[in-house]
């Protein structure tokens, strides 16, 4: 089961639309798409997770890697459109306090 990944550049922001389940098998695919965006000069990345119904800990690791990379390049990373299950994962792990996340997906419209 592959992820459905699409990128879009809009007003100097890179928006990554992800669909599917992010687990140990699909995580490498997400990393490949996300990593180059976070390594730009002052990256500004938005990841739209509206079509993601499940993320496991490997998937979470990809976002942590992305956060570290964005911070190192003095940019920003925002995750939007999280469903309740995914939101809970970010909240339990305390990542909601170090990452910009939102259930809304206004920005992506």
């Amino acid at each position: 089961m592959d992820l459905d990944i699409r990128t879009e550049e809009k007003n100097g922001q890179d928006i990554l639309y992800v669909g599917g389940e992010v687990d140990a098998y699909t995580a490498p695919q997400l990393r490949e798409s996300l990593k180059p965006l976070t390594e730009k000069d002052i990256p500004n990345v938005i990841v739209d997770l509206a079509d993601v119904d499940y993320i496991d800990s490997t998937g979470l690791g990809i976002f942590i890697g992305a956060l570290k990379s964005v911070n190192a390049n003095e940019g920003s990373l925002k995750l939007i459109g999280l469903n309740a299950r995914v939101k809970r994962l970010f909240s339990i792990t305390g990542l909601d306090e170090v990452m910009d996340i939102s259930e809304e997906r206004e920005e992506a419209k």
Partner: peptide, 8 residues
């Protein structure tokens, strides 16, 4: 640890 590793 590598950047995408963590432990709970």
């Amino acid at each position: 640890v590598a950047s995408n590793m963590f432990i709970t």
